[in-house]
Amino acid sequence: MDIIIGIIMGIVEGLTEFAPVSSTGHLILTGHLLNFHGERASTFEIVIQLGSILAVVVLFWRRILTIFGLHKSEEKNSIGKLNVFHIAIGMLPFGIGGVLFYDTIKDVLFSPQTVVMTLVAGGVLMIIAEKFKPAPVANTLDQISYKQAFAVGLFQCLALMPGFSRSGATLSGGLLVGMNHRTASEFTFIMAIPIMFAASGKDLLESWSHLNSSDLPLFITGFVTAFVVALIAIKFFLSLINKIKLIPFAIYRFLLAIVFWIFIL
């Protein structure tokens, strides 16, 4: 049963972590349907998140090296030349918010009721972003300005609330400050690497006591499944996002909120 749970939860994590649909909401709902709860389940979710973020590292390794000046960008006539300062500026608001409010949010707001509300709120923001976005001025990663990076970082703070979706918040923010869909998506994925490693690493250290050798098959299965599925899902999402935009994802969030209301609340 552990192997089956690992595969199912790994698939859900890999499919939803970087789509603007709330991986937290999907994992809570799936765990409820599988009767998989408690500290063991929470620690498992941290591990499979690391599998998903490893997929981003694999897919964007050239760009990551470029950010640190270890690889030459292939883009010509670029404006900002995406570098480590863009990432740091984008992370700053979320980092400050996380340090100040993370424990409070986790203790007070981490509930099914909050997830339902943030699923809806995130969907509304995505529709607003699509309806009121300006003409894009950043059509590649190297055209992102420091001001745009900081603005996206501010939107990312919304993802401190469970269920809001970090991807949904940053994609919406990217569109509203003049990025096209693909550029906002790629910036979201790259900015997720340090944030998710830091947050997941902190949670994993705090949950380490809940691990034992009998859990290895579950954790390894979930990690590998999430990694492989995320590799495929990210490539598919980047090829799709410029075509379908954000509104179909917003509608999906509304439907998920209804399902959440029926099965969880």
Rank of each mutant, 00 (worst) to 15 (best):
F155C: 09
G51M: 05
P93N: 12
L109Q: 00
T104K: 14
F44T: 03
F164Q: 02
I127G: 11
M117Q: 02
Y146H: 13
L54W: 01
P134S: 03
K72I: 14
K81F: 09
Y102L: 08
T140R: 05
G168E: 01
N139I: 05
G123N: 07
F44I: 11
G38H: 09
K147L: 10
H86G: 08
S165E: 09
V115I: 15
K133R: 15
L160E: 04
T104W: 15
N35S: 13
H86C: 09
V108M: 00
L160M: 15
I79S: 03
K81E: 12
R166H: 09
M91V: 14
I127M: 15
L50P: 03
T114E: 01
M161R: 05
F110L: 05
I96R: 13
G51K: 05
G153I: 04
Q113P: 00
G69H: 08
L92Y: 00
A151C: 13
V152R: 00
I128Q: 13
M91C: 14
P162V: 09
K131I: 08
F36K: 02
V116D: 03
T140L: 01
I53C: 08
T66M: 13
H86M: 11
P112S: 08
V120T: 07
T43A: 14
S42V: 12
F85C: 06
A55M: 06
V58P: 01
